[in-house]
């Protein structure tokens, strides 16, 4: 299992790490597969994402995907932000190992949850349609 240089760059120096204190929406998601946690906070003006920050407890791919999704989402309308898919995140990172695709699902879900939270807080209907499906990955053992 090898990570691309892009994954390692984001992992080594993540972008937009932290919490927006007066956030308009907060998305907190956990990974049922491996137990990782992600929190996305967003600042919204006229239904556009002015600022996006993340906190993640997880593997290299979880940190890299949350970092890259903050870059991808900044400046987008909320409609476009919730359409970001795991495949787009993986492409932005020059690919992810198959066993790590579910980490990009977590990032996409975190962002969706934050947008829905913003909408619900403002008395509006959520638009994300809920979390993406997590597939099961291949089996293997690390060096022992």
């Amino acid at each position: 299992m090898l990570y691309s240089d892009k994954v390692m760059d984001h992992f080594g120096s993540p972008h937009n790490m932290g919490v927006i204190e007066d956030a308009d929406g907060v998305g907190e998601v956990g990974n049922p597969v491996c137990g990782d946690m992600m929190k996305i906070t967003i600042k919204v003006t006229d239904d556009r994402l002015d600022d996006v920050k993340f906190q993640t407890l997880g593997c290299g791919a979880a940190i890299a995907t949350s970092s890259v999704i903050t870059d991808m989402a900044r400046g987008l309308s909320i409609e476009d932000a919730v359409k970001i898919t795991k495949a787009e995140i993986a492409r932005e990172l020059d690919g992810l190992p198959p066993a790590k695709m579910h980490c990009s699902v977590l990032a996409a879900d975190g962002l969706r949850a934050a947008v829905d939270d913003y909408l619900v807080k403002n008395g509006r209907e959520p638009i994300s349609g809920g979390p993406e499906h997590v597939e099961h990955d291949e089996h293997g053992h690390a060096a022992e």
Binding site: G12, V33, G58, C59, A61, A62, A99, H141, A142, A143
Partner: peptide, 18 residues
């Protein structure tokens, strides 16, 4: 590893099987 040190882990995330 990035700092030149090789170790290993039993974490779920590191094991292809999660």
């Amino acid at each position: 590893d990035a700092q030149g040190i090789a170790v290993s882990t039993g974490s779920a995330c590191s094991s292809g099987s999660l």
